[in-house]
Protein backbone atom coordinates (compact mmCIF):
# COMPACT_ATOMS: atom_id res chain seq x y z
CA UNK A 1 0.00 0.00 0.00
CA UNK A 2 1.26 3.45 -0.82
CA UNK A 3 1.02 6.60 1.26
CA UNK A 4 -1.54 7.95 -1.21
CA UNK A 5 -4.07 5.32 -0.08
CA UNK A 6 -4.73 7.52 2.96
CA UNK A 7 -6.62 10.73 2.46
CA UNK A 8 -5.94 13.98 4.30
CA UNK A 9 -8.53 13.20 6.99
CA UNK A 10 -7.02 9.75 7.66
CA UNK A 11 -3.60 11.38 8.00
CA UNK A 12 -4.93 14.00 10.39
CA UNK A 13 -6.45 11.23 12.53
CA UNK A 14 -3.19 9.23 12.53
CA UNK A 15 -1.26 12.35 13.51
CA UNK A 16 -3.70 13.22 16.30
CA UNK A 17 -3.96 9.72 17.77
CA UNK A 18 -0.39 8.41 17.49
CA UNK A 19 0.90 11.28 19.61
CA UNK A 20 -1.36 9.97 22.36
CA UNK A 21 -5.06 9.86 23.06
CA UNK A 22 -6.32 12.33 25.64
CA UNK A 23 -6.74 10.50 28.97
CA UNK A 24 -10.42 11.24 29.48
CA UNK A 25 -13.68 9.29 29.34
CA UNK A 26 -14.40 9.92 25.65
CA UNK A 27 -11.04 10.41 23.94
CA UNK A 28 -12.35 9.98 20.38
CA UNK A 29 -14.90 12.72 21.02
CA UNK A 30 -12.07 15.09 22.00
CA UNK A 31 -9.99 14.13 18.94
CA UNK A 32 -13.06 14.57 16.72
CA UNK A 33 -13.71 18.05 18.09
CA UNK A 34 -10.09 19.05 17.47
CA UNK A 35 -10.39 17.92 13.84
CA UNK A 36 -13.92 19.21 13.23
CA UNK A 37 -15.30 15.69 12.70
CA UNK A 38 -17.88 13.47 14.37
CA UNK A 39 -16.56 10.90 16.87
CA UNK A 40 -18.25 8.14 14.87
CA UNK A 41 -16.30 9.21 11.74
CA UNK A 42 -13.01 9.16 13.64
CA UNK A 43 -13.67 5.67 15.01
CA UNK A 44 -14.94 4.33 11.67
CA UNK A 45 -11.86 5.60 9.83
CA UNK A 46 -9.60 4.15 12.55
CA UNK A 47 -11.42 0.84 12.29
CA UNK A 48 -10.73 0.78 8.54
CA UNK A 49 -7.06 1.67 9.07
CA UNK A 50 -6.78 -1.13 11.65
CA UNK A 51 -8.35 -3.58 9.18
CA UNK A 52 -5.96 -2.50 6.44
CA UNK A 53 -2.99 -2.76 8.78
CA UNK A 54 -2.07 0.93 8.58
CA UNK A 55 -2.62 1.13 12.33
CA UNK A 56 -1.22 -1.98 14.00
CA UNK A 57 -2.94 -1.44 17.30
CA UNK A 58 -4.18 1.16 19.73
CA UNK A 59 -2.26 0.70 22.94
CA UNK A 60 0.06 2.10 25.56
CA UNK A 61 3.67 2.50 24.52
CA UNK A 62 5.93 1.80 27.50
CA UNK A 63 9.22 3.51 28.20
CA UNK A 64 11.71 0.71 28.89
CA UNK A 65 14.11 3.09 30.56
CA UNK A 66 11.59 4.24 33.17
CA UNK A 67 10.64 0.59 33.81
CA UNK A 68 14.19 -0.09 35.04
CA UNK A 69 15.61 -1.48 31.81
CA UNK A 70 18.32 1.15 31.84
CA UNK A 71 20.79 -0.77 29.68
CA UNK A 72 20.00 -1.29 26.04
CA UNK A 73 22.21 -2.46 23.25
CA UNK A 74 21.56 -2.47 19.55
CA UNK A 75 22.87 -5.89 18.56
CA UNK A 76 23.64 -6.37 14.88
CA UNK A 77 24.23 -9.69 13.17
CA UNK A 78 25.55 -10.94 9.83
CA UNK A 79 23.25 -13.89 9.22
CA UNK A 80 23.16 -16.16 6.17
CA UNK A 81 20.35 -14.77 3.99
CA UNK A 82 18.84 -18.20 3.39
CA UNK A 83 18.40 -18.77 7.14
CA UNK A 84 16.97 -15.37 8.04
CA UNK A 85 13.29 -16.17 7.47
CA UNK A 86 13.58 -18.95 10.04
CA UNK A 87 16.01 -17.34 12.52
CA UNK A 88 14.70 -13.75 12.52
CA UNK A 89 11.37 -14.62 14.18
CA UNK A 90 13.19 -16.84 16.71
CA UNK A 91 15.37 -13.91 17.80
CA UNK A 92 12.35 -11.59 17.81
CA UNK A 93 10.49 -13.97 20.12
CA UNK A 94 13.06 -13.63 22.93
CA UNK A 95 11.53 -11.65 25.81
CA UNK A 96 14.52 -9.30 26.13
CA UNK A 97 14.22 -8.20 22.48
CA UNK A 98 11.85 -5.29 21.85
CA UNK A 99 12.51 -4.71 18.15
CA UNK A 100 13.93 -7.12 15.59
CA UNK A 101 14.36 -6.11 11.97
CA UNK A 102 15.98 -7.20 8.76
CA UNK A 103 17.86 -4.31 7.15
CA UNK A 104 20.08 -4.21 4.05
CA UNK A 105 23.83 -4.77 4.21
CA UNK A 106 25.94 -1.89 2.89
CA UNK A 107 29.33 -3.40 2.11
CA UNK A 108 32.06 -2.53 2.82
CA UNK A 109 30.81 -0.16 5.55
CA UNK A 110 28.10 -2.34 7.03
CA UNK A 111 27.98 -6.16 6.82
CA UNK A 112 25.02 -6.77 9.17
CA UNK A 113 21.51 -7.70 8.03
CA UNK A 114 19.73 -8.43 11.35
CA UNK A 115 19.09 -5.87 14.10
CA UNK A 116 17.80 -6.82 17.56
CA UNK A 117 17.32 -4.21 20.28
CA UNK A 118 18.17 -5.92 23.58
CA UNK A 119 17.05 -4.52 26.94
CA UNK A 120 18.37 -5.30 30.40
CA UNK A 121 18.81 -3.88 33.87
CA UNK A 122 22.56 -3.75 33.37
CA UNK A 123 25.13 -4.10 30.63
CA UNK A 124 26.01 -7.57 31.99
CA UNK A 125 22.41 -8.63 31.54
CA UNK A 126 22.42 -7.30 27.98
CA UNK A 127 25.65 -9.20 27.27
CA UNK A 128 24.10 -12.42 28.63
CA UNK A 129 21.09 -11.95 26.33
CA UNK A 130 23.39 -11.28 23.38
CA UNK A 131 25.22 -14.54 24.15
CA UNK A 132 21.85 -16.29 24.10
CA UNK A 133 21.12 -14.87 20.63
CA UNK A 134 24.58 -15.92 19.42
CA UNK A 135 23.91 -19.47 20.61
CA UNK A 136 20.51 -19.46 18.90
CA UNK A 137 21.96 -18.29 15.58
CA UNK A 138 24.91 -20.71 15.75
CA UNK A 139 27.03 -21.09 12.61
CA UNK A 140 24.43 -19.23 10.47
CA UNK A 141 25.88 -16.04 11.96
CA UNK A 142 29.29 -14.95 10.68
CA UNK A 143 29.83 -11.90 12.92
CA UNK A 144 28.07 -9.63 15.35
CA UNK A 145 28.52 -6.46 17.39
CA UNK A 146 26.62 -4.64 20.12
CA UNK A 147 26.31 -0.87 19.86
CA UNK A 148 25.54 0.90 23.13
CA UNK A 149 24.14 4.38 23.14
CA UNK A 150 26.25 6.95 25.00
CA UNK A 151 23.83 9.86 24.56
CA UNK A 152 20.22 10.25 23.55
CA UNK A 153 20.37 13.41 21.47
CA UNK A 154 16.73 13.50 20.41
CA UNK A 155 13.78 11.27 21.10
CA UNK A 156 10.22 12.23 20.29
CA UNK A 157 7.22 9.98 20.63
CA UNK A 158 5.57 11.28 17.52
CA UNK A 159 6.22 9.03 14.57
CA UNK A 160 4.22 10.63 11.83
CA UNK A 161 3.75 8.22 8.99
CA UNK A 162 5.71 5.47 10.71
Amino acid sequence: MTASALDATDRAIVRATQAGLPLCREPYQVVAEQLGLAATDVMERMRRMLERGVIRRIAAVPNHYALGYTANGMSVWDVEDARLAELGPAVGALPSVSHCYRRPRRPPDWPYNLFAMVHGHSRDEVEAEVARIAALLGPACRAHEVLYSTAILKKTGLRLGG
Binding site: M1, A3, L6, D10, R11, V14, T17, Q18, A19, G20, L21, L23, M46, M49, R52, G53, V54, I55, R56, R57, I58, A59, A60, V61, P62, N63, Y65, A66, L67, G157, R159, L160, G161, G162
Partner: peptide
Protein backbone atom coordinates in the same frame (compact mmCIF):
# COMPACT_ATOMS: atom_id res chain seq x y z
CA UNK B 1 7.25 8.52 32.12
CA UNK B 2 6.56 4.78 32.44
CA UNK B 3 4.07 5.03 29.59
CA UNK B 4 5.21 7.40 26.87
CA UNK B 5 1.74 7.58 25.31
CA UNK B 6 -1.50 5.69 24.81
CA UNK B 7 -2.29 5.92 21.14
CA UNK B 8 -2.25 4.49 17.64
CA UNK B 9 0.82 2.44 16.74
CA UNK B 10 1.34 2.88 13.02
CA UNK B 11 2.75 0.10 10.83
CA UNK B 12 6.06 0.97 9.19
CA UNK B 13 5.92 2.04 5.55
CA UNK B 14 2.13 1.94 5.37
CA UNK B 15 1.26 5.55 6.10
CA UNK B 16 4.65 6.91 5.10
Amino acid sequence: GVVSRVGAVVAPHRAG
